[in-house]
């Protein structure tokens, strides 16, 4: 569980986050939505400890990040997995090398133990024949899956995904979403996902936070989001013609 208390973050005059508070629960897929530039990436980077908030606290399973020593922070980092917006695979290493990297760095496992673990997670993300290929040689969807495999190889307690399905076709996007949700439930991970994909919201939005102008404008579940009267949320959710049509049909059907 991650508790966020009144987070502020500015870059110079640009006040990006203006006091965000919320709770992300264990075993659930928590979604952060909002327009491009609304500060989703900045927020998730605060959660990861890559950015230090100017004000406010973040508490991971009862530990306040600001009160941890450098060493404790490092240990906490090792319990986190992150899937970056652009996958961020190490392009000098093969797929297998990328996934094995955290094991090489932080465990003393034997080569065969590591290999077994790598094979296991790569299979878990449905990649079976790409082990020896380089990131540049595989498709975007495959890269995302490798990034997920690398993020979960150390059995993280917290998983963060920055737009895990941007740039993917709808079918692959749903596969990735479902994969993340399954993994979250299977290993009881606290998962936080940034997205502006309404399909994801519908599919896996167990808890949704809507960011706007640096504030948390709305919070709820995927069931609630399609019924809310909050103007900002409906504007965002129904910005696509498809969703407008669906809503209209829904209303007509009801009458």
């Amino acid at each position: 569980m991650i508790e966020v208390e009144n987070i502020h973050k500015s870059f110079g005059d640009n006040h990006v986050l203006k006091g965000i508070s919320t709770v992300f629960e264990k075993g659930k897929t928590n979604l952060i939505i909002g327009q491009s530039g609304s500060g989703k990436t900045v927020f998730i980077k605060c959660l990861l400890g890559l950015f230090e908030p100017d004000e406010g606290q973040i508490c991971y399973n009862g530990q306040y990040y600001s009160k941890l020593s450098t060493k404790e922070r490092r240990n906490l980092r090792q319990e986190m997995g992150m899937v970056f917006q652009g996958s961020a695979l190490f392009d000098s290493m093969t797929v297998e090398g990328n996934v094995m990297f955290p094991l090489d760095m932080f465990t003393n496992q034997s080569q065969s133990e590591k290999q077994d673990r790598v094979d296991f997670v790569l299979k878990r993300v449905n990649l079976i024949d790409a082990h020896k290929r380089y990131p540049a040689e595989i498709s975007g969807g495959m890269q995302k899956r490798v990034a997920i495999a690398r993020a979960i190889v150390m059995n993280p307690k917290y998983l963060f995904c920055d737009e895990p399905n941007s740039g993917l076709d709808p079918k692959t996007a749903i596969l990735i979403d479902n994969l993340i949700q399954e993994i979250t439930q299977e290993y009881d991970i606290t998962t936080v996902i940034n997205t502006h994909d309404m399909n994801s919201v519908m599919e896996i939005g167990e808890k949704i936070i809507f960011l706007k102008n640096g504030f948390k404008e709305w919070e709820g579940t995927n069931k609630e989001i399609f019924k809310t009267d909050n103007k900002a949320v409906t504007d965002f959710v129904y910005s696509s013609e498809l969703f407008k049509k669906v809503r209209q049909m829904y209303i007509e059907e009801r009458n």
Partner: peptide, 13 residues
């Protein structure tokens, strides 16, 4: 620029 350095940092490296 491809966030590989962030990826290293996140891992605690």
């Amino acid at each position: 620029v491809t966030e590989q350095i962030d990826a290293l940092e996140v891992m605690g490296i």
